[in-house]
Design a protein around this nucleic acid. Structure first.
Lengths: 260, 260
DNA sequence: GTTTTTATCGTCAGGCAGACGACTATGATC
DNA sequence: GATCATAGTCGTCTGCCTGACGATAAAAAC
């Protein structure tokens, strides 16, 4: 480390940005908020905000998540406040650090370093608009990521700042992580069927999976699913068994993503 | 994002810390430097330093890496200066963002947010002491991580700050990443034998692998290795073919890490 | 020359995934 | 109520890959 010189610290602002993903209507969606002030006024952006002076990064992410979605997110009492080690459950949603973005020009106002967090949530009620009357919406990630083509529809404008890059990184993380972990259950309500879980994989990966092989795989992996007791017919067709997420977090061998 | 208020930015300092890993004498080692000033004066720490006002995070990491190891590391001209997307090759070494640590109490002097980078390097010559005469050394990660037991030997003192946590996260990242990528070749010189590559896996994972099955796996995976033409006998025994890292970056199916 | 060391090729059995057939149990429709 | 459409669940078969391990090859050490 360079010799310590207190005057040597340029003024950095530190923010957290959230990539909040969910699956709605068989589509992978992300939470977007409309910016109320410059720069990028009126454009869609990822939710986020400044980290407070005495707040841990994950604490700040939890706070922003609660403000935007109403998901209760109390920081873990004492465990590893600093590190990214270990995901952190918030009311069934999954939260983990994604990456940090610090291009000197990423914010025209000043030097901002942003720590992005990834949240995987079950299908939530309509997003809360937040106290400051900003509008928020769930948007398919494909729409948010190909906002480049200029179009009259302001819903199609590219995301503010470098948020398209952050979102793309978050989506890629989610896609690869459900391969070798049981994280896909974070997209499901507390009780769900094998078919619902399969539709999560299909939406996140954008592929069709064989229902029979999928069923064999997830029910055959110890600790992945535990029977919840009942059945449901909410998807139509023959009643399906309800399951809860089991204790296992790592899938070994992993769920194989079909080659495109 | 919260309404913009320029007065609302607490003074954050942003640093980069480096987890530089290599394999020496069949052991996974990390680069450690001795701190020359308080806090934690005299203790071992990860190399790192403050990010400069107009410097991208990865640029800062490259600069620190060059200062500490002499590895030439010029930032990519224009590509994705901000994101963590895509590793970045530096003279054969691999550099990628690891995670960001921002516990308000992690540095007693002030609020410091540190972005950690992971570097995988081939066995280098002795580390450069650096212009400011600090000492640096390669230490087995097991020694650095179990420095907790109080002992007279100052080489055994725990790492400064939260660097033990950062190092542990970096080691875990490396362990899991060589499973499904060809990154293990970053620990090797430009030409290497299958046996040398196997010893990298054995050192990083701390297990013994079957030489025959390993040979079949790596030579049978298209794009992983390309013959370099010659043979060498530097490891003793029968001469072994020399290989170079192939273009493939992802291993599919992955190299399986034996269950403990 | 014999031993030691490392590299490399083969063989074999078991596990798992992909492809797909068959059957079951509901609601919707005629 | 019969039929159809929709989902869910159980099996079968084949091929690929892995782990275990035998066997051979080519050098250095003794």
């Amino acid at each position: 480390m360079a010799p310590y010189d207190p005057s040597a610290h340029p003024p950095f602002a530190v923010t957290v940005d959230l990539v909040v993903l969910t699956v709605r209507r068989h589509t992978l969606c992300a939470l977007a908020v409309r910016r109320g002030e410059p720069p990028y006024q009126g454009r869609w952006a990822l939710p986020g905000g400044f980290v407070r002076p005495d707040e841990d990064l994950m604490e700040a992410a939890c706070r922003e998540l609660a403000e935007e979605t109403g998901l209760r997110a109390q920081p873990p009492a004492s465990t590893a406040a600093a590190g990214p080690s270990g995901p952190y459950g918030t009311d069934g949603a999954h939260l983990e650090q994604l990456a940090t973005y610090g291009d000197p020009k990423r914010d025209p106002r000043m030097r901002v370093v942003s720590v992005a967090y990834l949240v995987l949530a079950p299908d939530l009620p309509a997003p809360r608009a937040g106290g400051d009357a900003r509008s928020a919406r769930w948007a398919p990630v494909t729409d948010l990521l190909r906002g480049e083509e200029g179009t009259d529809d302001e819903q199609r404008a590219p995301l503010a700042f470098d948020h398209a890059l952050i979102l793309a990184d978050g989506v890629e993380r989610a896609r690869s992580k459900i391969e070798y972990s049981s994280l896909a259950t974070a997209f499901c309500p507390s009780e769900f069927t094998v078919g619902e879980l399969r539709r999560v994989y299909e939406a996140v990966w954008g592929v069709a999976l064989d229902p029979r092989n999928f069923h064999r795989k997830v029910t055959g992996t110890p600790g992945f699913l535990v029977p919840a007791g009942g059945t449901t017919t909410r998807q139509g067709g023959r009643p399906a068994q309800l399951f809860r997420a089991g204790g296992a977090t790592l899938l070994n061998p992993p769920m194989l993503r079909p080659e495109v």
